[in-house]
Design a protein around this nucleic acid. Sequence first.
DNA 1: CAACAAGTTGACGTTTACGTAAAGGGAAGC
DNA 2: GCTTCCCTTTACGTAAACGTCAACTTGTTG
Lengths: 136, 136
Amino acid sequence: MPYSISDLAKEFDVTPRAIRFYEEQGLLNPERRGQTRIYSPSDRVRLKLILRGKRLGFTLEESRTLFELYDPSSGNRRQLETMLETIDRHRTHLAQQLHDIQVMMLELDEAETRCARALEAAGSAENNKNIASTEG
Amino acid sequence: MPYSISDLAKEFDVTPRAIRFYEEQGLLNPERRGQTRIYSPSDRVRLKLILRGKRLGFTLEESRTLFELYDPSSGNRRQLETMLETIDRHRTHLAQQLHDIQVMMLELDEAETRCARALEAAGSAENNKNIASTEG
DNA sequence: CAACAAGTTGACGTTTACGTAAAGGGAAGC
DNA sequence: GCTTCCCTTTACGTAAACGTCAACTTGTTG
């Protein structure tokens, strides 16, 4: 059930150095057996969330504040309101990204069409060359 | 119809320094009147695309290669095939992000619920205090 | 027991994407 | 003509997120 640092590194295709760095930044807190880090399944989930955050362009700092949203019981009224604002900001951000992705996907479709057309043209040109050389 | 650097800077909420940097990296090529940069509407669109790329976590380098996809006529067969691969990579990437966003939106909903509950609890506690102090 | 693999802690290096002066040009207004 | 903007280039500084040694400890395997 527990993982070594290289277990996680291999599974998620990151370096042990990166994982240690996330810990240094306060995003992970694995147990230790002596000096050696021992990662629990929940540490593993955390790492997963960190990497998902990275894929969405979040800084490690942002991911860290997102983690705090998982435990709202520890906050006073003021902190809870800040949390709600944070959630709203992230929602807006995600909605913007969602829109960006959809538009870009359409553009990729168009780009693919243009490329395919250009390849076809190049292909037929090459065919002509081949025909010509075959004819010669 | 043309824009100054500060026009664009204001419109897109970036610094002139950033815009000059994008040019330095080969992403923009505005005309000049003397030394002064003059941006056309298409330069403006380019800047927009750069910033959209940034929102999706692309490096400037990646955005630059994406721009090249807009003009496939200038490529030979080998380059066109590379372009198609690039398009496919980006599609996969965007699909992953799309998924990440959807999952995270659900998680934000849950987090909001937890926060609201915690606030409610804190609120009723405060009410009790108020009642107690009103009662005293 | 020697060697090797895998882990550890510094500590400095690197890339990306700008920020931040410094020093100056050119036109517009008083 | 002087000041005030806005623009310019050059150049060094910086934050984030690791990469890359170096030097060392800790099992474990031949």
